[in-house]
Write a protein that binds this DNA or RNA. Structure first.
Length: 259
DNA sequence: AATCTCTTCAACCGCCTCCGG
DNA sequence: TCCGGAGGCGGTTGAAGAGAT
């Protein structure tokens, strides 16, 4: 236990975190893991600023949180990524970009750090710059506005029910350009919107360099369907609407880069 | 066997957003 | 409205192990 240094300052003052100079860094020891685990079991997750003091650890709150989320949490799945998981990861990355936490949220038991590491280690290398001759269609996230009541009839925004599933996002009528920031999207619209998301994720046209090597078996597609559910619905159901905001940001960025 | 190079991944860092006072 | 603290995220680093020479 010699390497677990409980700050005297923490003991004496009861401060939630020790001064940065005395906070331990680097690899976690088995003893530290045990202390952190016991603390989380006793008090539950959250209030990370209290964890170092409660657990008797000379670690900063962020370090404790990261250690728990990336390593100690019981439902973390370890080991190599299955083909299905890789397939899903690629599709989600096509859709969401480097939103590792969002991608990890759809991969049961995988952490954002795992996904990020796997991507940077294995998949990024497989990416090949597209040949100028090839016309790669870039899929961009759609702008969504949650300000419209869900039960509103959406005939104004999407009066062509045929285009939703197969059209490109850029051509989608849900991208409203009129009346300033009143662009809106009605989630109750119809199944076309669900199909739009699913088609985006189930699209066989993978970017060059990866994905093409992956077999899209029936079981694999089933896995993807089950894992994804309806991403759009998931995003809406989440408490954190910032996810949707991020899609807006992406859309704006895409428009800036592709005027 | 020794050394060098490459790979992996746990952990840190800095920034952003959210929230309460 | 502003400010500070907490939570959370993505980018990056570096130690350790594996493989090559």
């Amino acid at each position: 236990m010699s390497n677990i240094l409980i700050s005297d300052n923490v003991r004496r003052t009861g401060l939630m975190e020790a001064p940065s100079l005395s906070v331990r860094k680097g690899a976690w020891t088995e003893e530290e893991d045990i202390l952190l685990k016991k603390c989380i079991e006793k008090y539950g997750e959250g209030t990370w600023h209290r964890v170092p003091f409660r657990a008797g650890l000379n670690r900063c709150r962020k370090s404790c949180r990261l250690r728990w989320l990336n390593y100690l949490k019981p439902d973390i799945k370890r080991g190599a990524f299955a083909d299905d998981e890789v397939d899903l990861m690629i599709r989600l990355h096509n859709l969401l970009g480097n939103r590792w936490s969002l991608i990890a949220g759809r991969l049961s038991g995988r952490t954002a750090n795992d996904v990020k590491n796997y991507w940077n280690t294995y998949l990024r290398k497989k990416m090949v710059k597209p040949s100028p001759k090839l016309n790669i269609e870039v899929i961009k996230p759609r702008p969504l506005n949650l300000s419209v009541p869900l039960d509103k009839n959406n005939s104004d925004n999407n009066n062509d029910s045929d285009h939703a599933a197969a059209s490109t996002p850029a051509s989608n009528s849900l991208v409203s350009s009129d009346s300033g920031n009143n662009s809106s999207y009605d989630f109750s619209n119809d199944n076309n919107e669900i199909m739009w998301w699913k088609n985006m994720l189930m699209n066989e046209d993978e970017p060059q360099g990866f994905g093409n090597n992956i077999n899209h078996s029936a079981s694999g597609d089933k896995f993807i369907n089950e894992a994804l559910g309806d991403v759009r619905t998931q995003v809406v159901e989440e408490d954190n609407y910032g996810t949707v905001d991020e899609l807006f940001i992406d859309f704006d960025l895409w428009n800036m880069l592709n005027p």
